[in-house]
Amino acid sequence: MTELTKSDAGAGTAQTAAVPAEAEPAIKRITQWGEIRHRFMANRLAVVGLIIVGLLLFAAAFAPLLAPYDPLHQDLANTLASPGGEHLLGTDALGRDQLSRIIYGARIAVIIGLASIFLACLIGVVIGALAGYFGKAIDSVLMRVADVFFAFPLLIGAIVIIIVMGRGVAPVVISLAVFSWPTVSRLLRSSILSVREADYVLAARALGAGTTRIIVRHIIPNSIAAVMAYAAFSVGSAIVAEAALSFLGVGVSPEVAEWGNMLSAGRDFLGVKDYLWVYPSIAIVLTVLGFVFVGDGLRDALDPKLR
């Protein structure tokens, strides 16, 4: 018998090479993260997304070094200059350098996008986890609260919050977070609901594992993937929403170098000075695509069943 089963194991190495790792000659430690990174990097679009996001973060971090001009400096002698020459992307009606404003705009986009989604995930994960794990009445109450926020139109809600708090970065972050956490909590809740019925959770309970251990070792690692992918994905949509708020004049102050503000300013020159809105639009579209690609790549890479 021993011999028989040993050869089974041996045959396993030789034959079940359906798995990439099996094909490797030596047994080396393949960490979870190593494998996820490997799968992520194998996805071409995800890598493109990662490069875009990397450039965005770079621009945001080193804006003062990269930008040729002060984005707020008004060169009134040189207003509405066409792209090329001294001002690579031209100047606006107040003579501010477009390129510099776009580079500085990345800062606002990154800060608001990341902060609002981080906040949304924080609220969403706590509420989703509570609802999913405890179920019953707690679940019903929390999910009805989530429904209310979900049903509320984002723009109207944001306008109310901004009227109360005034314009600025913080009110925008808060209003975006307040209306995007319900999706996160719903995602996490449904994923916890399926994971907590899984046999491996039963097996852990049968071994005598406590609640903390079950949540930390079994439920969170298996249900958080969906949230991580969604979070990456929604940073992009948060940036769009933020730009929309500014475009409508309820976002950050109008003088700030911000893509929505630039679009808003460019609106007056539609068909005349199109470069005023085309370049900020490109910045927004690229940014959103970058985050979408990264989110898609993460979702696939985090799924242990997809190989």
Binding site: D8, A11, G12, Q15
Partner: peptide
């Protein structure tokens, strides 16, 4: 009585008779 080993991997089927390893 147990047939030893595992069903073959069709990506890399064994040379010769596919059942030979078992």
């Amino acid at each position: 009585y147990a047939i030893k080993g595992l069903p073959p991997n069709l990506l890399k089927p064994p040379t010769g008779c596919a059942f030979s390893p078992r």
